[in-house]
Design a protein around this nucleic acid. Structure first.
Length: 275
DNA sequence: CTTTGCACCTGTTGGC
DNA sequence: TGCCAACAGGTGCAAA
């Protein structure tokens, strides 16, 4: 999936076109996502007006205000999901699984080749939903700071990269940006999280924020399957410092970038700059 | 409790 | 050129 910058870019692309619009119809062509798309989703959506689009971690929360309560369409893009808005939807292509048609035939289309994504309907308070409630700090919130990381990692021997990708601690840091942020902070991904000083964790907090912010500013990474919600391919101009650069010279010191595996995911780092 | 590894699924890539 | 194994943005869950 898109990582957090792509999700945020999608939110910003999709929301302005749809907020305030009423759902005319919803079509689910394939319910087999990570969890089945609920059978009653079409009927639940019909006639409802979109009040706003929020993001929590990599979940998009489409808010539908009602007379009694606000209900939420919860969407996660998984690894390969994408959302696009069409003024007039073209013919459906393979892997286009859901269409939500608003006033004026404006269509929100969900596509996801690998179907690792999620589309659920939550009645009432979404914050208490089992997928949302356990989530850790938002990287741009004040809750995410060195003290919190320090407390959350004491006595833990997990590698800092895996801790960074642990959603119960901090959300929204996927494989690419975990690699990039650790490079910016000069921290070796294999370092035991519980042994890092508060100062180094503070540097990591800054690095995570700046890495994500740069990517959001650039409109999200260029991903094979990602298409910006407006239809333009995401153009992440800021090249990766380490991700995918095994054997290539470090942009800072020229040392060859190393690749290892941690938790079945690829890790890249500079053996000289990252200690 | 923490940590590890698997599972879900399809498409692309790289090596032989 | 063709085939096939390995790998790819995520993350819940079971097992150790």
């Amino acid at each position: 999936m898109p990582e957090l910058p792509e999700v945020e870019t999608t939110r910003r692309g999709v929301a302005p076109a749809l907020v305030g619009k009423r759902v005319v119809a919803a079509h689910v062509y394939d319910r087999r996502l990570r969890w089945p798309v609920p059978a009653g989703l079409e009927r639940a959506l019909e006639g409802r007006t979109l009040a706003g689009v929020d993001r929590r971690s990599k979940y998009l929360l489409f808010r539908f205000a009602g007379a009694l309560a606000t209900d939420t369409l919860l969407v996660h893009l998984g690894m390969t999901g994408s959302l696009r808005v069409y003024k007039r939807a073209p013919a459906r292509k393979p892997h286009d699984h859901v269409d939500i048609v608003f006033d004026g035939k404006l269509t929100l289309r969900y596509r996801d080749p690998r179907r690792f994504g999620t589309m659920l309907w939550i009645e009432g308070d979404a914050a208490t939903h089992p997928l949302i409630a356990p989530l850790g700090a938002e990287p741009f919130s004040t809750a995410f700071d060195a003290g919190m990381l320090h407390r959350g990692t004491r006595g833990r021997r997990v590698a800092i990269k895996l801790a960074l990708m642990d959603n119960k601690l901090v959300v929204g840091v996927g494989n690419i940006y975990a690699n990039e942020a650790l490079f910016r902070a000069g921290i070796r991904p294999t370092k035991a999280a519980g042994r890092l000083s508060r100062e180094r964790l503070a540097a990591l907090v800054d690095a995570v924020r700046s890495t994500l912010a740069d990517a959001i500013a650039a409109g999200g990474s260029t991903l094979r399957d990602y298409v910006g919600s407006g239809g333009d391919p995401g153009a992440f101009q800021l090249g990766y410092a380490v991700y995918g650069r095994e054997g290539a010279p470090c942009r800072t010191c020229g040392t060859r970038i190393k690749a290892i595996r941690q938790g079945q995911r690829s890790t890249y780092y500079c053996p000289r700059c990252q200690t």
